[in-house]
Design a protein around this nucleic acid. Structure first.
Lengths: 161, 161
DNA sequence: TAATCCGTTCAACGCGGATTGAACAAACTG
DNA sequence: CAGTTTGTTCAATCCGCGTTGAACGGATTA
């Protein structure tokens, strides 16, 4: 049976949202479908409801699983995989922080650190003039300070959500 | 004259950062170049330093201008456009909030509102069963509550940066 | 007016990632 | 064992977006 207009619109909204965030559109469609679904859904139902291939449904659900945005459900005596949405989006963000956002942040801090180091070696090898060296150093250090503030802010925001 | 290794690395870092955020790589390169530049730079200098076309330099700088990430500078008796980086990234975020993030948020709130409205009309037209209607309503309302929390949080984060 | 200089615009190209059908593997069923 | 059911993998394709050279327009100068 076809979806009611509201749910169709929801699918479109989440699809566009995902696209805007640089994530695959199909994952957004699936999440929107599950978010307003009264029942858990199997792979084939998902593919048919959305008019996408079973392959897309498979890869999409696995991505959503990796992001902890959907949960897998098994029914007794049924080999099929069923899925339901993790409707608490704040919880989705929280469970992705440690595994996704935090590593990104730490990486960027390491990179700025290595930039400061390479700046020192540039200075010693004379690859940069004194004035330029000073300016680079100041700006890189200001960048490092911003990163620290962000790293302090993120866990805070996480809790307030 | 060529850039020192540190600045080359900086260009690469900001380029990848921009790419990761779904923004054009060239804009990131330009920002990285300007961020550690002791002088303001003209369009041709930018293009040549980065090995990109003048067209890319033009579109890239205009995007960065729109994001308030660079400033345009004029020299007396010189028709060329010069650019310098807005090095206070927190300020960049702040000046983009009202014109970019806030409208997005408000849009998404309107969309959820219209979803709730269309749900009501679905109910009246009998396009949705009572049970499904209840579930949809609850989840959409929970979504609206999350949006409210986000909208309260963003200005806060803005100030703490 | 002709000749430069600068910046923007635009059609064409290329690249990276999303999507898909088909082949495949694994677990049942008869 | 042959035949289903179900999910995954993979090469091929599609598609959107960034990039570019070339053409253009405006401003300045000779």
């Amino acid at each position: 049976m076809p979806l009611c207009p509201t749910r169709l619109e929801m699918v479109e909204v989440t699809a566009r949202l995902c696209q805007m965030l640089g994530m695959p559109r199909s994952a957004g469609q699936i999440y929107g479908l599950l978010y307003l679904s009264p029942h858990v859904l199997g792979l084939d139902e998902i593919a048919e409801s959305l008019g996408i291939s079973k392959a897309s449904a498979s890869t999409g659900t696995r991505q959503l699983l990796a992001w902890h945005a959907v949960r897998q459900v098994w029914k007794q005596g049924d080999r099929k995989d069923y899925f339901e949405a993790q409707t608490d989006l704040a919880e989705v963000l929280r469970s992705n922080y440690a595994g996704f956002f935090r590593p990104k942040l730490e990486n960027s801090q390491r990179r700025v650190g290595s930039l400061l180091a390479s700046l020192e070696s540039d200075r010693k090898s004379g690859a940069v003039e004194r004035e330029e060296y000073q300016l680079c150093k100041e700006r890189l250090e200001s960048l490092a300070r911003l990163q620290n503030r962000v790293q302090k802010l993120l866990p805070l925001a996480e809790n307030l959500l």
